[in-house]
């Protein structure tokens, strides 16, 4: 009798505590996702839509701009994420050395870009990378380049600006995750390896990287989602240009919905493309991590 009352009490309280969040998530997350699945089959402009069967899927198959946005997103991902993660790992390992001086200062300064808003820092980068701007002037005066680089007017260089900007903003953020994980590693393992004469780079590859694998995986997933979300920087620095050279999936959906002829049905289908990509990538990343763990 007493236990069932206690049990019922637990049940009522359990639901009462989580209910406000669940109701809100139901309305603002689960309902929109399901609705956009239904909307994917609707055609029409603005708020007037009707059932269009597979018309949107046909449009998807012939959408050159979507392919452009997808390939740009993949290029950003393949180039930017590895560079950032390797840099963040190197900084974290360097800063984890207790004998290093000014560790706190270095850590603070490397983390500093994280306090800027995406819009604020992208405006800064736009002004620094202008044609006669500080970056070109510096590179020319160091004789690294002969003529100014058309950073914002050439599709290739515009991609490089975006990649540089994102790397600047997020390397310190990732570094903090690795630093925290490194501090949990038992120092005696390193002592033993050092006494056995294992060189530094081998300690890094064979001890540090395997032990940080879960965190590296976690940050890779975060960065993947971040790349798929990429919007603020490209919208502010290049507006997807020049010649769609920096068009991303998020910006494309935004343009489809709010800048071109609004077609909510088709935007919803493209949104589902993102959901599908996230699902596949998450599965792939987990499988890779599991296989590596088994192999080692």
């Amino acid at each position: 009798m007493a236990t069932t009352r206690l049990h019922r009490n637990e049940q009522i309280n359990g639901w009462a505590f989580v209910m406000p969040a669940l109701v809100l998530l139901g309305i603002f997350m689960i309902y929109p996702i399901l609705w956009s699945l239904w909307m994917s089959f609707q055609v029409g402009r603005g708020n007037n839509f009707s059932f269009g069967g597979l018309a949107n899927i046909q449009r998807l198959a012939n959408d050159a701009l979507l392919v452009h946005a997808l390939s740009n997103t993949i290029i950003f991902f393949i180039i930017q994420v590895p560079i950032m993660i390797v840099l963040a790992l190197l900084f974290a390992v360097a800063l984890n050395d207790a004998t290093l001086r000014f560790r706190g200062v270095f850590r603070t300064l490397l983390f500093l870009p994280c306090v800027t808003s995406l819009i604020a820092y992208s405006s800064l980068f736009k002004s620094m990378f202008s044609n006669d701007g500080i970056i070109n002037q510096t590179l020319v005066s160091l004789h690294l380049i002969g003529a100014p680089i058309p950073w914002l007017t050439d599709p290739f260089w515009a991609k490089m600006v975006i990649i540089t900007a994102i790397t600047w903003r997020w390397t310190g953020y990732n570094m903090i995750f690795y630093l925290a994980a490194l501090q949990n590693i038992d120092k005696s393992i390193y002592e033993a390896a050092r006494i056995d004469g294992v060189p530094a780079w081998a300690r890094f590859w064979n001890l540090t990287v395997p032990m940080l694998k879960p965190v590296i995986l976690f940050t890779t997933i975060l960065s993947t989602i971040g790349t798929l979300q990429l919007f603020d920087e490209v919208n502010n620095i290049t507006q997807g240009g020049p010649g769609n050279g920096t068009m991303t999936l998020s910006l494309y959906i935004y343009n489809l919905t709010f800048r071109m002829m609004p077609s909510f049905g088709y935007s919803a289908l493209v949104s589902w493309v993102i959901v599908a990509i996230v699902a596949v990538l998450s599965i792939v990343q987990f499988v890779i991590a599991r296989d590596r763990r088994r192999a080692s």
Binding site: M29, I33, W35, S36, L228, Q229, I253, T257, S267, V278
Partner: peptide, 16 residues
């Protein structure tokens, strides 16, 4: 649901 990007939600949210 944690890994679903906001871009995938914004259109239905806007209609809502």
């Amino acid at each position: 649901f944690l890994s679903i990007p906001f871009a995938a939600l914004m259109v239905p949210l806007f209609v809502l």
